[in-house]
Amino acid sequence: MNRTTKDTTLGIMECPTVSETNSRLSHKQGRIIKERVIETLLFLAALSSVATTFAIVFILVYESIPFFQHTTVLNFLTDTEWTPLFDEARYGIMPLVAGTLVTTGVALTVAIPMGTIIAIYLSEFAPHRVRETVKPFLELLGAVPTVVFGYFALVVVTPLLQKIYPDLPGFNMLSAGLVMGIMIIPYVSSVSEDAMRAVPMHLREGSYAMGATRFQTAVRVVVPSAFSGIAAAFILGISRAVGETMIVAVAAGMQPNLTWKATESAATISAFIVQVALGDLPHGSIGYQSIFAAGLTLMLMTLVFNIIGFWLKKRFREEY
């Protein structure tokens, strides 16, 4: 008796009626259509960012063409003066590149050591509570508007530096670079710290078991293991410094100046673009087109750093 009931139940489950089969099928088709729609939406979202990048590159190149008909690429790269807005215009990008590289260099001499040391401390030494308190404050540093940093450089750091070097001009790359370095610290430290914390505990234990101290473990095992992530952090910092605009525009000066001395005043590529973009130059004038050539140069510079970063990441990627 009991057995019969059981068999019946099983029978129903195994052989669904015709109407049931149909409703299941239509349900499946509905699901397929829904999946397709979602997939398309996701694809479009991904496409939009790629399309934007290509559109920017296209516009930079397209708008630079008339500029390079006016002057040659060779002249652009070798001329030592950048005065596209003057009557006797000169189109050498080098003064702006020099300004960008010097401010970036100063910023990195602050941000890379400081950022790495902070990351090592937070990842390997700081007690849990300290880390959880310090990290948000550090990340807040990255949230300060850059124009505030610019004024900080101009009205606080420059006067302080002038006490040490009385000859320092009011606008100078040293002050702008130092403050920019402080601004970049959280970018470097945050990504480096994540990379170090991702180093598996069994590698640290291996080091401690050999009689290593915390410091030896951090420097000899954790940092080399996390090197690909740390390199990515450095590249992120460099890209940020190369493209940074407000701090240098406010504190480093607006005069293109071919110099490698940080104590002088000079304009960077980004500062020049701001200067022109804010002015009232007619569209299509050579001065207007010069910002596209400058923008293209800036983009190529960051591209080179990103390629180096990509290579470093691949070269030093560790499989734990």
């Binding site: 069994h202 590698l203 234990e205 291996g206 080091s207 401690y208 078991a209 050999m210 009689g211 000899r220 095992v221 080399p224 293991s225 090197f227 560790e318």
Partner: peptide
């Protein structure tokens, strides 16, 4: 640890 060394479950060579 200078006197007593250890080998772990999973090989953990350093990079």
């Amino acid at each position: 640890r200078m006197r007593i060394s250890m080998v772990f479950q999973k090989p953990n060579p350093f990079p």
